[in-house]
Computed example of a mutant assay.
Amino acid sequence: MPDVLVVGAGVMGLWAAVMAARAGHSVLVLERDRVGAGASGGLLGALMPHQPDRWNAKKQFQLQALVSLEAEIAGLETASGLSAGYRRTGRLMPLAADHHRERALKHAGDAATAWTLDGKRFSFDVLDAAPVPGWPATEAMAAGVVFDSLSGHISPRRYLQVLRAVLEGMPHVEIREGANVVSIDPSARTALLADGGRISFGHVVLSAGVSSFDLFSSLGLSPPRPIGTAVKGQAALFRGDIDPALPIIFDSGIFVVPHEGGYCAVGSTSEDSFDDPAATDGRLDEVIAAAWRLAPVLKGATLVERWAGLRPKAIGRDPMIGRHPDFPAVSLLTGGFKISFGIAHELARLVVGEMESGSPCKLPPSFTVDAHLEAARREKP
């Protein structure tokens, strides 16, 4: 029987396994398909902070996580001998109108105080022209462009490979693919598999992306509303003469994210209603067209992949993290939606720390399981 059973092998689940193994626990990771088969195995890998205005606990937590991630990735790469494709390249945000520029100048003042941590200060600069001509296109930035030095990117699939390699080199850790957990019995501390098998555990971490919400329901509680939902995203991957050191471009929900080897990912849609979660369609074509307008160099690049997948959005929109208030052997580590990659390591650290100490995680209030349960109670059935 493992000390810690982790259900799900996306970036959240793998980090939970790493943190539990570092703490000396035996760990079993169960993945119904394969490592990274869900949203974590996508294309974008953008690591971007919230805007620096109206600073709060959530934004501070994300800032600390984005800063600490650099050292964590370096440690993983050293241990595995692999590269995760991480770079802090910054982000460019075109300003289409004068009132956008005025708001950005206010944000620059906010960042001067908020974006400082451990002696490091990150900028939010309003520029008249892009640092690299044509990136983004001049036509997209009639009122200038913002450059922030905090943002970066990581290759989602390489990141997962690095985490897996690290885990496979640790004692008392097993990753088992093709193991579909359909329900959790928190009293008996067992997980039921689709093939009828049962696995006992000391503690379980539910980190199975969209499936986490059904597993939550299997605990026997019936909140008036589902505790989370699936949001479909579509993205595309190009390859061409694109420098991986270029900043991310972000504009009105469109991401253009350079990666190693001349690759560049663009995305993404956010679809609450869909017929086929794995199909790409005209909505992705619209995203690609928007990306071409932002970065015309992509028109000469080769389209190598179209991708679609489901991202888990908890009912309170923020991640749902920590021990279940009624079941002390169950922890939630899910619902990261669009920000999981930048904060998964710190969330996993807190979940494992809470499991060991019995004391609640020191989380932003909106991240807690209680906050999401309250949000479900407030919603009408």
Rank of each mutant, 00 (worst) to 15 (best):
P328N: 10
V304M: 14
E346N: 04
T334M: 08
S357E: 00
V352D: 09
I288T: 08
P325T: 02
D275L: 09
V304Q: 11
R317W: 09
S357Q: 00
F327S: 08
R283D: 08
G316H: 13
A295Y: 07
E271I: 06
F274G: 00
G322N: 09
I343W: 00
D285V: 11
T302K: 11
T269S: 11
T302H: 06
T269F: 10
A348L: 05
A279M: 02
A279V: 00
S340V: 03
G322Y: 03
P277A: 11
G322R: 05
I288R: 03
T269L: 10
V330S: 13
G342P: 03
D275T: 14
L303E: 07
V352C: 09
W292R: 14
T280W: 03
A314C: 08
R293Y: 12
P277V: 03
L303W: 06
R317P: 04
S340K: 02
G342R: 01
P328A: 12
V304G: 10
G353E: 11
A289Y: 04
I343G: 00
M320S: 05
V304I: 14
R306H: 05
E356M: 08
P277R: 01
A278Q: 06
S357N: 00
I321P: 12
H324R: 10
F337M: 06
R283W: 03
P312W: 02
D285L: 15
E346P: 00
G342L: 04
K313C: 06
G300D: 15
L310R: 01
L298Y: 02
I288C: 04
